[in-house]
Design a protein around this nucleic acid. Structure first.
Length: 593
RNA sequence: GCACCCGUAGCUCAGCUGGAUAGAGCGCUGCCCUCCGAAGGCAGAGGCCAGGGGUUCGAAUCCCUUCGGGUGCGCCA
């Protein structure tokens, strides 16, 4: 039950009536106006801006927007759920709802439990098939904190979209085709020689020095003995590469598992050219060629400082400028191989052919310069039918008690994602990474996130949930035999909830479905995190009012009906907290021990 | 030189795709525990939404521009 969407439909119906009577054009885009909570609660329960939005269209039939507003308000006042509808300010319609509407919201929330706020089955038309590609760290080493942010973001976004009624696939693109996996193979081979007793000394420049390859070397030695020793690289490279990539991917999978992240699809870049179905990169290029979007030409060198090895020559180019890119982009390297972009085009073509309406790519901010060309490619490949949204995650600055954590680039001496998770826990890592817009830089303070104070948003929200559970336990102790099930509490006399704070909490509850919808539509899970924090804040505040005024406490032994009504309220709130945290992948504990 | 992201309270950040008098936490000042978890809460001070133009009923939000910060800039991934 979403009263905002509900009343949007009712106002839309009123407008349609005016259109039928010839007083408004009948091609109004009804998605343009909104029904939202008013700026201040004192103004009412719902605010509608339709009259102002359609001011231009209403000129002929109504004169000025206030007249349109007045007539909409008049029609709304007939609604049995409305106690008052009045025009205010430049043309807002402020609606005050009958108390029974909020009772109905509360009962609906209790009846639906963890599914309250989940998109109803009825919205088939709006549901999409969405592919979320995230993490996609190169399989050359353990994940660092920056990867972790993209991972958590992508995972929470995927869950959010599912909760909002979409069909979602979580996907990981393995960059296993480039030169750096050859470097990985050489590095692993060195560790292999080391495992067989050779003193390899310092790891040479250009190879991966990290200790994490030591066990890979040992495993190679166990499996192949001396079989890969004293042979030219061409004899062992392929074997070692496959082996090392598998080991790295296994390690990455474990890092992700530590964050409760799993992907349904791991897509190998290499499989594009060597997998079943032939060379998919060639097929993609052929497809673009057939659309006359590929040509051989010369690119102007970039202005400013020229690259040292610049060589003016013809290239095979994709006409990305036709789709908004700044320059056309090369598809073939000078050695004849495919560029990374060419592979990525093929990869996105595979996704498009998979029937998705929306593709979401989660990348690090350092790939921002790549967005336009990818967008151009998806437009070209899908004929503009498939939407691509690239979400860029900014850097994570690791801090400890206000001081930056030193991250030297030397010898694999960096803080891994795993170390951070082990130190502060999954919940803290996940929530803090989501408690920020994805395109804003993030300061992650290792000391602060394990602090148990309101300074720490994770704790604060979890505590709100635990506090409700605690009150429930107290209630049972105070009134033995009380039935605390949602079914029983839903039968309480909810009209007894008349305190301002209580009504504020019910309104907050009513907003949950709307927050889910908006956050999902904008692909912004942080909105949910902020909503949960605000909900927790209101809950703590109401709890505290009971400190000063005993009659406001949730549990009153001698007022059983009132107690039940209040328990119904906070139970529904705890359900929302649990559901919301669940979407973010954070636990909702029953007690904070 | 060009492109993209960002600029909101002393600090860290929200601001619901253009709505009403711009919000929260920290920090600062002053309060609240014989009482459901003070691991909390209440109140106060603090702003030319980087600057300047524009679009319209209405702009922190959209467009142009200047300044300041970040990222990237044939064939790497």
């Amino acid at each position: 039950m979403n009263i905002f969407a509900d009343f949007h439909a009712r106002v839309a119906a009123i407008l349609a009536g005016f259109a039928k009577a010839g007083r408004l054009p009948d091609n109004l885009d009804l998605a343009r106006f909104v029904v939202e909570p008013p700026r201040e609660a004192a103004l009412g329960d719902l605010a509608v801006n339709a009259a102002m939005v359609f001011a231009k269209e209403a000129k002929a039939g109504f004169g000025n927007p206030r007249q349109l507003a007045t007539e909409i308000a008049f029609a709304l006042a007939e609604d049995s759920d409305v106690s008052q509808a009045e025009v205010a300010g430049p043309g807002f319609i402020n609606i005050r709802l009958q108390p029974h509407v909020f009772g109905a919201v509360l009962r609906a929330a209790l009846a639906q439990g963890g599914d309250y706020g989940r998109a109803p089955q009825g919205r088939v038309g709006a549901a999409q098939k969405i592919n979320v590609e995230y993490v996609s760290a190169n399989p050359t080493g353990p994940m660092h904190v920056g990867h972790g942010r993209g991972a958590v973001f992508g995972d929470a976004l995927a869950s959010l979209l599912e909760f909002a009624g979409h069909t979602v696939t979580r996907e990981y693109y393995i960059n296993d085709a480039g030169a750096q996996v050859d470097v990985l193979a050489r590095s692993a081979h060195l560790r292999y020689r080391e495992a067989l007793g050779e003193n390899v000394g310092e790891i040479p420049e250009g190879l991966y020095p990290g200790d994490y390859l030591v066990p890979v070397g040992k495993a190679l030695a166990d499996k192949f003995g001396k079989g890969l020793l004293d042979k030219p690289e061409s004899d062992w490279l392929e074997t070692v590469r496959v082996f090392a990539i598998d080991a790295m991917m296994e390690m990455i999978r474990q890092d992700l598992a530590a964050l409760n992240i799993t992907h349904e699809v791991f897509f190998s870049e290499r499989s594009l050219t060597r997998g079943e179905g032939g060379d998919k990169v060639k097929a993609a290029i052929d497809y673009l060629t057939s659309k006359n979007l590929v040509y051989v030409g010369r690119l102007a060198p970039p202005k400013g400082k020229l690259p040292d090895d610049w060589e003016d020559r013809d290239q095979t180019l994709f006409r990305s400028t036709q789709f908004g890119d700044d320059v056309d982009r090369p598809l073939l390297k000078s050695d004849g191989g495919y560029t990374y972009f060419a592979s990525d085009i093929a990869y996105h073509k595979v996704k498009i052919d998979g029937g998705y309406n929306t593709l979401i790519d989660v990348w690090g901010a350092d790939h921002g310069g790549y967005v336009k060309r990818m967008d151009a490619a998806v437009k070209a490949l899908s004929g503009g039918k498939v939407a691509l949204d690239v979400k860029l995650c900014q850097l994570v600055k690791l801090m400890r008690a206000g001081e930056p954590v030193k991250m030297s680039k030397r010898a694999g001496d960096f803080v891994t994602l795993r170390e951070v998770v082990d130190e502060v826990g999954v919940d803290a890592v996940r929530f803090m990474m989501l408690y920020r817009k994805n395109d804003a830089p993030l300061e992650f303070d290792l000391a602060k996130v394990i602090e148990q104070s309101k300074d720490n948003a994770v704790f604060y929200v979890q505590y709100a949930h635990a506090r409700v559970k605690s009150v429930m336990r107290q209630a049972l102790a105070a009134i033995p035999g009380l039935d605390l099930s949602a079914d029983a509490l839903a039968k309480a006399d909810l009209a007894l909830l008349t305190d301002e704070g209580e009504i504020g909490l019910v309104k907050m509850l009513a907003q949950f479905p709307r927050v889910i919808e908006a956050a999902a539509a904008a692909h912004e899970p942080h909105r949910l995190a902020f909503y949960l924090h605000e909900l927790a804040s209101l809950l703590h505040a109401q709890w505290n009012r009971g400190k000063d005024a005993a009659e406001l406490r949730f549990v009153n032994e001698d007022k059983r009906d009132l107690t039940c009504a209040r328990l119904a309220l906070i139970l529904s709130l705890s359900t929302v907290l649990a559901a919301g945290l669940g979407v973010l992948g954070v636990r909702a504990p029953d007690e904070m021990r």
